[in-house]
Amino acid sequence: MLAKLQAFYEKYGPDYVKEVLAGEHDPYGNHISALPVYYAIYGALLILTVLTVAVSYADLGPLSLPVAMLVAIIKASLVVGYFMHLKYDTPFNVLVFFGSLVFLAIFFVFVMVDLNSRGTLVAEQENFSIHRAQDPAEVKPAFVTPKNSDHGGGAHGDKKDGH
């Protein structure tokens, strides 16, 4: 038994992994990944998919979205790094890819800053209208009139419903 394990370790141990990860090269010096790498990545992707689904059933509260996104990012990095070979690609192609993510992040962050802080003006104005109704009917979702949306569009939507 032990001898078998030993043999297995010698065959598939760190040296083997190193050799597999090193891969080969085509006539232009481009990297060719070894087959086991692809299968390993595929296995990892399947496991992570199961994990995402499982996480969605476990009630993690406010953590569930970050955890789901983290798993998705790990999956995406595996695909990008190994299936798309970005790990072995030229630095400029890496820059192009991450550059596009940076600019996307700029878009997201600025708009989210606006969405998050847009209520302040509304809040200030509401301080002046003493008789503003507090009944839930008024914060009914959807079909917000254009007048309301001047300060945050659908922000009146169903911010207070649900949870």
């Binding site: 890819f97 596009s100 996307l104 878009f107 997201f108 989210m112 979702p141 911010k159 649900g162």
Partner: peptide
């Protein structure tokens, strides 16, 4: 990525407006 980024941005905004509906 930037092209699809637009719909993801729309997703973020609408989920921000309508969290209950999304759930």
């Amino acid at each position: 990525i930037l092209f699809f980024g637009g719909v993801f941005m729309a997703y973020i905004a609408l989920r921000f407006f309508y969290p209950g509906t999304f759930l």
